[in-house]
Design a protein around this nucleic acid. Structure first.
Length: 424
RNA sequence: GGAAAGGUGACCGAGUGGCCGAAGGUGCUUGCUUGGAAAGCAAGUGUAGGGCAACCUACCGGGGGUUCGAAUCCCCCCCUUUCCGCCA
């Protein structure tokens, strides 16, 4: 959520910023709603003030007739007030919903561009593997080795579900432990294991609601929503809190399964394990002082890149242009890994600086010094990393040609020394 | 799922219709004291909205109701704790 004061005081600047993400109408309409709301607030508060003053005086009025007259007067005022309050509440509700529907403003250093074709490749790292044979796709390898059971996955849960088996299931488990261990022991992040289901208000806090509910799963009978990313529960851990300045910057790392309806992308990426309704991810979530968020974005990005390097995977860094930013992000980088079998760059991490956009929604603040007014923190997050596509990259890049797959050296301690998986 | 007891400021904890934005304590900040520190003493210490200065308004789990007036009374809901049941 943007700061309404900023919009009021600098409407043209906000308008210009929002135009970069393709939003050209929000500012004018929000200013109208704000003006209307404030007019009502003024009227309502004046009436309340009068009522409070008179009510306070009522017990000391001696003359019974005069006392009764005042009470009647206040009763009438109360009736008028009730109507106005109803109107005010509705104006507030409309205003709030509109505020929650305005996207974040892009950072100054975010490049212009209308869509993903304008994203900037900001570096390519590692070496793409070369093969003396035609490399197979991961779905071919998965089936030929028996390490992925697509048929039974769809049998029990439908399309876009699969079952990892044997050494590949173990590989994913090893990857999760490896990532968590590197992030906690080498990068100094604090591990948390959050709930995979949250209350609705959490989705408002991080920005999935009210606009993107169609991508979420939720329980029909109770207020439980399946998390689409660990960002949701971990960011909301501190909702409505005033954090101690000494705890900042605070970085958590969490493993969760993620659940997404992926309604929008039906028909795309249907082969293999690239895009499912359920996938695993290790996520980094940071809470920092405003002046620290740009540096933290870099730190999170480097932490994710470190994992890719350790796994010996070829990858590239993309700076996301304004038009391709997600709703909540002010700045964003994607990391993509090269998958030799399907010959594609696969997004394995998205690192975003939300600045105070989520913090304002979720009420996450800190106090610089005792006695100071609370300020909103800046929040950031980044995948570190998404598991299925890392699995794809390992399967396809580390295939040996005889139907087997080498295990990246860095994973050896987490794989009990197993260096090759597959039949034979 | 059943029963009971509770949800008040950073924390503990008073408060059953107006004198309560809320006693008292703890914590925190500042000052005094001290060679320094602890202890002690004194003062200060919620958030948000509107005017943006004085000031006004709202908030005592959430929502609704009664009333001239509600933290205090009524209704609904949520949550927590304990016991029972069920389970991993």
């Amino acid at each position: 959520m943007l700061d309404i004061r900023l919009i009021r005081d600098n409407p043209q600047a906000v308008k210009a910023a929002l135009a970069r993400v393709g939003d050209t109408t929000s500012v004018d309409s929000i200013l109208e709603l704000d003006a209307r709301r404030r007019t009502l607030v003024g009227e309502i508060e004046a009436m309340r003030s009068e009522r409070n003053a008179v009510s306070k005086a009522v017990p000391s009025i001696k003359d019974p007739a005069e006392k009764q007259a005042k009470i009647s007067e206040m009763r009438a005022l109360g009736d008028r007030l009730a109507l106005l309050e109803k109107e005010g509440a509705e104006a507030d509700r409309v205003f709030e919903t509109a505020m929650l529907s305005i996207p974040n403003m892009p950072s100054e250093d975010t490049p212009d561009g209308a869509d993903d074709s304008a994203n900037v490749v900001a570096g390519e790292f590692g070496t793409r593997p070369e093969f003396a044979f035609q490399p197979k796709t991961h779905w071919e390898l998965g089936e030929s080795t028996g390490l992925i059971d697509f048929e039974r996955g769809t049998k029990i849960s439908g399309t876009r579900f699969y079952i990892l088996k044997g050494e590949l299931a173990r590989l994913q488990r090893a990857l999760i432990s490896f990532m968590l261990d590197v992030h906690t022991r080498e990068h100094g992040f604090i591990e948390v294991y959050p709930p995979f289901m949250v209350k609705e208000h959490c989705l408002y806090g991080t920005g999935q609601l009210p606009k993107f509910g169609e991508n979420l799963y939720h329980d029909a009978e109770e207020d439980f929503w399946f998390v689409p990313t660990a960002e949701v529960p971990v960011t909301n851990m501190y909702r409505d809190e005033i954090l101690d300045n000494a705890t900042l910057p605070l970085v958590h790392v969490a493993y969760t399964a993620c659940f997404r309806r992926e309604k929008m992308s039906a028909g795309k990426d249907v082969r293999g394990i690239k895009r499912g309704h359920q996938f695993d991810k290790v996520e980094m979530v940071a809470f920092v002082r405003p002046e620290e968020s740009s540096a933290m974005l870099m730190r999170l990005m480097e932490s994710a890149e470190h994992i890719l390097d350790r796994l010996g995977l070829p990858w590239r860094r993309l700076q996301i242009c304004a038009g391709d930013l997600s709703f909540t992000a002010a700045a964003k980088y994607d990391l993509e890994v090269w998958a030799a079998g399907c010959g594609e760059w696969l997004e394995v991490s998205s690192i975003s600086n939300f600045r105070d956009f989520q913090a304002r929604r979720a009420g996450i603040r800190f106090r610089r010094n005792a006695g100071d007014k609370p300020e909103f923190v800046h929040t950031l997050n980044g995948s570190g990393l998404a598991l299925p596509r890392i699995m794809i990259a390992i399967l396809e890049n580390y295939q040996t040609g005889d139907g087997r797959i080498r295990v990246p050296e860095a994973l050896a301690p987490w794989m009990g020394g197993t260096s090759v998986i597959g039949p034979g």
